[in-house]
Amino acid sequence: MSTHRISSAKFLWGIAGALLFLTFLTVAVTWFYIPEPWNVIVAILIATVKATLVGAFFMNLYWDSKFNLLVLLTAFAFLALLILITMTDTLYRVDPVPSF
């Protein structure tokens, strides 16, 4: 069931290279004017691709037991619930500004 995936050094360097390129890309897109909210969406999108690369190939989720992936995705699902349910309140307050 479990995998002791041994990645080649070339492969690991390749993933690191891709991550560095995406880091450059996420900086480079800020040199151009992208209107709200697309600048945030682009930044989050690139970060998500980078996180997926790290998760899949450095943390070996791609080859690992799917249960471990499920654990991580469950955490993300509950995080999404936390944010979405809170925002149904905070976004629609008549007086949105609290004292802090």
Binding site: T26, V27, A47
Partner: peptide
């Protein structure tokens, strides 16, 4: 790697708002 992933999100969200 998780600590790295968290920084991957912190970096554009804090430093790269333009």
């Amino acid at each position: 790697h998780l600590v790295d992933i968290i920084w991957i999100f912190l970096f554009p969200l804090l430093y790269l708002i333009d």
